[in-house]
Amino acid sequence: MASSRMLDSDHLSAIAVWTAACLVGGFFLWLLSDIVWHGVAEISWEFLTTAPLNAGRDGGIGPILVSTALILLVCMVVALPIGLGTAILLAEFTTDESLFGRLIRRSLDVLAGVPSIIFGLFGNAFFSVTLGLGFSILSGGLTLACMVLPILIRSTEEGFRAVPTDYRLSAAALGLSRFTTLTHLLLPAAIPGLLVGFILSIGRAIAETAALIFTSGYVDRMPESLLDSGRALSIHIFDLSMNVPGGDAKAYASALVLISLLFAITTLSAWIADQWLHRRIIPV
């Protein structure tokens, strides 16, 4: 009796597990194939380079790609030095018990959980209104920089922590200054971690919509300066599907472009992390 019931629960659970896995996998394939199927017909060199016409129903996404790239550029130029500095401080220059380090870490953990729409509200109130940057690529990029900092710092810090302690001990024994140790020894060794963090941050930033609606705005012209409003790719998809009747075909194509970019980004970061695990030697 007991053994047959055991067999039953084993079988039932196996069925449940396989069903759930098929369900999730099937859903994923459905979503992806739907977007590829509808999107691929629209994609051409012309689509990627020409300006949108007729509110986006015709034409391409040229200026939108440029705006997206500029927003990402602003985001990373601001986030990188701050993120790198914080990561070095947390990994190399604070103990786990120090109050300052703990406070920073706690604050970053919470920041990582803050919803993107809140970053949008903050960006609008601070960068657009208080600092007077208005709806611009600059405000959008700065808002995103605040948003990606936690993930950037986390993976860079991991990179530094993965450098063997021996390096630091040897450098100290040789009487090298901290600055020299950092720039000549630790930084080169930690570059893969930094790279992974950099790529993941770009992935997070390029996928973002809610934080950009009230900071970088909707204008789909080619931006002339960083103070111009520029429409990011994700906002373009949103606008086409919600506000433009008949915009679905181009929205599919834009979604395909966005997903392909993200796919490339995650594959690259996974590859770098892999390479790094295989040989953890400093390239001096």
Binding site: I82, G83, T86, I104, L121, F126
Partner: peptide
């Protein structure tokens, strides 16, 4: 070295203050 540590502290300070800034502005 001292300059380096203070620069790093500055960067970390900015990173840590963002959350406070967000809450304060809200």
């Amino acid at each position: 070295d001292r300059l380096l540590v203070w620069t790093l502290r500055g960067a970390a300070g900015i990173a840590g203050l963002i959350l406070l800034f967000i809450v304060a502005f809200l």
